[in-house]
Design a protein around this nucleic acid. Structure first.
Lengths: 202, 202
DNA sequence: TTAAATTATGAGACATTACTCATATATTGG
DNA sequence: CCAATATATGAGTAATGTCTCATAATTTAA
């Protein structure tokens, strides 16, 4: 994920202390964002929450958006790792594999919700790039899953099938945001997807 | 949708001229939002785009958020109308009805995308209320649809079924945002939903 | 121990923005 | 035509937010 964002003349943390500072700034950004929304996520507030001064903050980030970019990077990585893990797990039957993938997608999406929101508020250029990168990665992961698990022949367009699969995950995320038993939702979508992938006889 | 937002001491447009002004301010808000994002949607910019002065703007709105509330009201109404229309349309078979509902949901969701974004940036209280109102309305509309069209008996929890249905719409909206043939997507989801609602023998 | 390098600080310069108000213009009703 | 009423204006104000910089504290390495 090539961060083209021209990181200009900023100090690069070399001591442990400063590396800790950077990490806590990013974490603070996440928390402040969660609590105050994008509007209320001011640099002063983030610095305060991180337990450092604004000066320190600007020693490692050129501007506010760069902090959020770092946060996005962090969350994106953890999101894709979770998906990856659920796919390349131990050998289980197809239905269980689908379930795991859904669970991973759901849990991670929940985490990333706030971040997605930030992305939408970023300069559109950066948003598009980051978002597309995530989508491409997710798409190729799901495609690999489908190839490994060979669905019914009628679904010859694996790429499209992957899109549908991802859409279902998104839909579930939406459902999760309203008050429902998560397990129930996962059950239902697992069924729905299983039938979609392996036919009605499943 | 009872606008509890205390509209304080603002002039109420009585002449045609001022009613036009108010309308063009709301429209300008939508456009500026689309072009500049929430950050860039300043009152000055909105006023300029609307072809009025900031003073005029503040003659009819107490603050920035009230403009966006008005915009949300406008878009919400048009969204729900579209759904409503697709449900209470002429008598057609179930599959076609599903398709129409999906198409309406998709088209309208596309329209509302920008507005949804605004809502997320509003003070959380207002956001939750507005958003929940939309969801309740949408939910009850879909439930009515399901009751009318009697799905398979196994799906005894109509409320939950409605949730799943809506989730699928959301998923499709997501898909629509990436480059795909919309018709193809609607086809696929119509199939998927039809099978879900009326069983594999469909 | 100490000089050099790195890191931390926070008051305040500078820019931006929501919103006001005194004044000017337009419309209406008689 | 003339009040009276409604509407429009936009420079200016106050509040807030981003980011800097001179200075202080800490760490490193010899």
């Amino acid at each position: 994920m090539g961060g083209k964002t021209a990181e200009k003349r900023r100090r690069k943390p070399s001591q442990a202390r400063s590396r800790r500072a950077v990490a806590s700034i990013i974490e603070a950004a996440a928390q402040v964002l969660e609590r105050w929304g994008y509007q209320g996520a001011t640099t002063n507030r983030i610095a305060e929450r991180a337990g450092v001064s604004v000066g320190t903050l600007y020693q490692y980030f050129n501007n506010k958006d760069e902090i959020f970019n770092a946060l996005i990077e962090r969350e994106t990585t953890s999101f894709l790792d979770a998906i990856e893990g659920s796919i390349s797990g131990p050998e289980v039957e197809n239905r269980t594999a689908i379930r795991r993938l859904l669970e991973a997608a759901y849990a991670s999406e929940q985490l990333v919700l706030g971040v997605r929101q930030v992305m939408r508020n970023l300069p559109s250029q950066a948003y598009s790039e980051q978002n597309m990168a995530i989508r491409r990665e997710m798409h190729s992961l799901v495609m690999r899953f489908l190839e490994l698990r060979g669905a019914i022949p009628e679904l010859d367009d694996i790429s499209l099938t992957a899109d549908v699969f991802i859409a279902q995950c998104e839909g579930m995320t939406y459902l999760g945001r309203i008050s429902r038993n998560t397990d129930e939702l996962v059950d239902i979508l697992t069924d729905s997807l299983y039938r979609y992938l392996y036919g009605p006889k499943g």
